[in-house]
Structure formats: C-alpha cells, structure tokens
Design a protein around this nucleic acid. Structure first.
Lengths: 196, 196
DNA sequence: TGCATAACATACTAAATGGTATGCTGCAAA
DNA sequence: TTTGCAGCATACCATTTAGTATGTTATGCA
C-alpha cells in the first residue's frame, strides 16, 4: 500500500487531474490547488513537470496495470479466461476510472508517447510486459492443449491489446453499452482459440 | 478539391501541427508561424481556437473519413471486404499520416471529447456514421446470404471500430509491424462471419 | 543541546498563451 | 469617383505557465 506522504498525495492528486484533463492541459498550479501544499513542496519532490509524469507512470500506472493484467496471467492455471477477466476487471471494476475519461495508460500513450521520449520508453515498457504476459499465457495454453496449435501468440496479444485500447477510446463517445458489447466480442474471440 | 484560399491554408497547417502535437499543445502562434499570414488573418477567419478545431473536424477530418470508410461501404456489392479494405487503406495508404502520430480523428477523440462538448458532438457524429455504414453493410451481407444469420451488426461495428482505434494507439508504440499483425487478425475475424 | 538538512511556504520571473484593438489596402458596388 | 467592407497586418494585453530564489520550520542525529 502506498504511504500517504506529501509526495504521494501530490502524485495521487496529479493522477486524478491528468487522468481527466490530460497531461498538457493540467497545470502545476492546478495540481497544488487541489492539495494542502504549495509550489515549494511540488518542486521539492519533483524536479520538473515531466518528472512528475514519469513518476506517475512508474508509481501508479505501472503497478496498477501489473496488478490487474499481468500478475494474474503469470500465476493462473487457466490462461485464456485470465486474459479475459483481467480486461473485464479493468473495464468494469476499477473504481477510480470513469468511462468518460478512458484508461490513464492509454490516454498517456495517445498524448505523450509521440512527443516525449521518456514517456514513450516508460509506457512502452508497460505494454511490452502485458504483451509478454499474454504471449506466455498462450504458449502455456498450447502446452496444456487448451488451444489450437496453429494460434500465433503475437497475433493474439496484438489483437487483444489493441482491442482494449480501442474500446477505451470508443467508450469516451458511447458510454457503458459498448463495453459490454466489446466484452462479448472478446469472449467469442478468445473462445474461438480453444480446441473443440 | 479544397480551394487553397487563406482560410484553408491556415486550416491545413493547423491540421498537420495538431495531428502531430495535439490540440492543446499546438498554439495559434505556432500555427501562423508555419504560414505566410499573421494573427489578424487567423482571427479574421476563426473566432476562437475552439472554432478552428471544429472547422478542422468538419472540413478535413470528416470528409476524409467519409471518403475512405463510409462512401465505399454504401456503394459496394461486397460489404465484408469493403470494411476491410477501407481500414487497410487508411492504415497503409494515407500519405499525410505517420504511424507515430496515429489517426487525427482518434487523437482528437482521446484528447478533446471528454472535456469539450462541441468536439464531443462533432466527433461522435463521425463515428456514428461509420457505425451505421458498417451495420448497414452487415445487414446487406445478410440479405445477400454472404454471412451467418446469427451475426449481430452492432457487435461487429463495435469490434471493428474499437479495433481500428486501438491499433492506432498501439502503433504509436510499436510501429508498422503491428499494423500488419492487426490486419491479419481483422481479416480472420471478418472471414469468420462468412457462411462456409 | 546544537546543528545540518529535509520539508516545506512565499514571492517572484520570463516566456507563452488566447484574444483584442486598431490600422491599412485593394476591390466591388453605388 | 466615392464609399464600404472583406481581408489582412501590427501592436498590444491580461492571464497562465513552468520554473526559480529565498526564505522559514520541522526533524533526525551526533
């Protein structure tokens, strides 16, 4: 559990604001206005606004994604349904998230990865970890004879991850209805991999 | 064809910059610096920066999406392969686009639709048009007995559109390789709808 | 206890930002 | 020929921005 020291309080506040408004559109003044601290505290704990963004990814986003999407995949005995339930959990059960604002990680990929190398590197690492976890799950499922032998792990991970990223985008326009529609589609797709 | 008057020159320049850097991160000064005009010209043709953004959607993005994704679907005799080829064209053959910067429409949905009602309305309209075109194509394909009767049009449109949006996001991190991987997956998915 | 340093607060700055006020110029209509 | 206005240019402005300079206070440690 995260200790609620000053740094983490600022970080959590920044996370919520940046999640809802975007990184560039959220000012440092705006962040500290939502805490009990001042600019001195902010720049004592973070050298630049960019550093805050990177800390946000490392300390909040990355652990959050790993907890829901990656750890379960490593430990499970049922890889296919774990791929599904990780995404389902993230879509339906993440209390901090609001469908209107999508997924913090995907938002930052969209906004920052093309224009900032540090953001790009750190965000890439999260997605690569997820990819690897999915691909290893598929391999595992192959060994267990759970899925067809002609399935290409990299294709599945690409299809699953882009589907998640996309529904987070579409959800901003269409609301919860499309989450369920997408989850049905994902379920059918994953089941189509299984040996009959 | 767009007449290259002052307004359209500014609009085209703004489109390129906003496409690459995002709406908020692109300043009016930056836009006019890339044209032969000044701030007076800008505010003569656009009341506010927001108005420029909306004009960008109406005059450039919407017609572009309609031309590649919607018009072909309305006129085709082969709905399923037209759904595929529209996306393939947009991914591989749009010269103005760079995989690093994704899709202008998807970018604006991500950045602006949660925080600006006018952006939300105009961008929604584009996606709804695409949805409708896909769903009507699926209906048409059903009538032609090309696809299974149990296929739900809304599910297909949701799956296809979110897939496109998602691969635009993932592409920013992973480059062209994943476009081809995704297109293979899309092809397999669409063919799974066809009657054997 | 004394003291160094961490942990903040306050006040400030230079640059950038969206937008305005005002002026000039050429052209079309009367 | 004059007049009005579209189509710009120039100069300006208030606000916001990330970041700094300089303090003050708390705290751990010798």
């Amino acid at each position: 559990m995260q200790k609620l020291n000053t740094r983490n309080k600022i970080l959590n506040t920044a996370f919520e604001l940046i999640y809802k408004k975007g990184f560039n559109a959220t000012s440092i003044d705006d962040i500290i206005k939502h805490t009990s601290y001042t600019k001195g505290a902010f720049f004592h704990h973070f050298k630049t606004k960019e550093d805050l963004g990177i800390a946000l990814i490392s300390d909040i986003i990355k652990p959050g994604m790993e907890k829901v999407l990656i750890i379960p995949l490593i430990t499970t005995k049922d890889p296919i349904s774990s791929i599904y339930s990780g995404i389902e959990n993230l879509l339906l059960n993440a209390e901090l998230f609001d469908i209107k604002y999508g997924c913090p990680a995907i938002n930052l990929i969209e906004e920052m990865s093309p224009v900032n190398k540090r953001f790009y590197m750190h965000l890439s690492q999260i997605i690569i970890s997820w990819e690897n976890a999915i691909e290893q799950s598929i391999e595992k499922a192959k060994q267990y004879k759970l899925i067809r032998s002609d399935i290409v792990p990299k294709e599945v991970s690409c299809f699953v991850i882009s589907g998640y990223a996309g529904i987070r985008n579409l959800g901003k326009l269409k609301g919860y209805e499309c989450y369920n529609t997408y989850l049905e589609g994902l379920d059918k797709y994953l089941k189509s991999l299984i040996i009959n």
